[in-house]
Computed example of a mutant assay.
Amino acid sequence: MKQVNLDKLDRRILDVLQQDGRISNQMLAEQVGLSPAACWRRVRTLEEAGVIVGYSARLDPEAMGQGLCVLVNLSLQRHTIDSTAEIEREVSSYPEVLQCFAVTGNADFVLRVVVPDMASYDQFLNEKIFTLRGIAQVNSNFALREIKNTHTLPVSE
C-alpha cells in the first residue's frame, strides 16, 4: 500500500479518533473545525484509503482474566517458504497470540501472548508451540509490569 498524503485536517481527525474512536461526527467536526458533512466525507475517505483500518474497544487483560503477558522468541531450524508459512498460519490461529512479528536478530518470530497464569502458559507451550514443526528454540520473557501499551500512531507533521 502506498502512503497517503494527509493534510493538517486529516491528521487532526486521525489524532482525535485515535483518542476516542466513539466520538460522534458532530463532536469530531467541532474539534477539528469542519462542518459535520465535510468531516464525515473526510473520515469516509480515510477509511476507503485504508488509513483507518477499523474501530475497536480496548480491554483490560487482568479484568478479563488474562493477566500473564509473555514475549516469546521462536527460532526456526530451517528457513523455507513452506515451513515459515505454516508456522505463520498456525501461530495466527492461536487466540492467545495477540501479536506476531517476523524479526531479525536472535529469533525469527516474536509473539506477544496473554494467558491467565503460568499453568495456562505451560499448556499453551506444550499443546501448541512445541507441536509446531521446524521450531529449534523457544525463549520466554515474562512481563513484570506494563510501562506503555498504545496503538496510537504519531500523526503530527
Rank of each mutant, 00 (worst) to 15 (best):
D117I: 02
N106L: 15
T152L: 14
L125H: 08
P61S: 03
D60Q: 00
P61M: 06
A85K: 10
L68N: 04
V115D: 00
M64T: 05
V110C: 09
S83L: 13
N5L: 09
L34P: 06
P95D: 03
E30G: 11
N139I: 14
V97T: 06
L6C: 01
E157V: 09
R145C: 00
I135R: 06
L153K: 15
G134A: 03
Y121S: 00
R133D: 11
L74K: 05
T152N: 09
V72D: 04
Q3K: 14
A107T: 02
P154L: 13
T150L: 01
I135A: 00
L17T: 08
S140R: 04
V115C: 08
L71S: 07
M64P: 03
I23Q: 00
V32I: 05
V138M: 02
I135P: 02
R58I: 10
G50F: 07
E90G: 06
E88I: 15
S140H: 01
G54M: 07
M64C: 03
Y55F: 04
D82C: 07
R89C: 11
A107R: 08
T84V: 12
N73Q: 14
L153S: 12
V155Y: 13
G21S: 03
M118H: 13
V72R: 11
F101W: 13
F142P: 01
T152A: 10
D60P: 00
N141V: 12
D10K: 06
N141I: 11
A102N: 11
S24I: 08
V70T: 03
A102I: 07
S156N: 15
E96F: 08
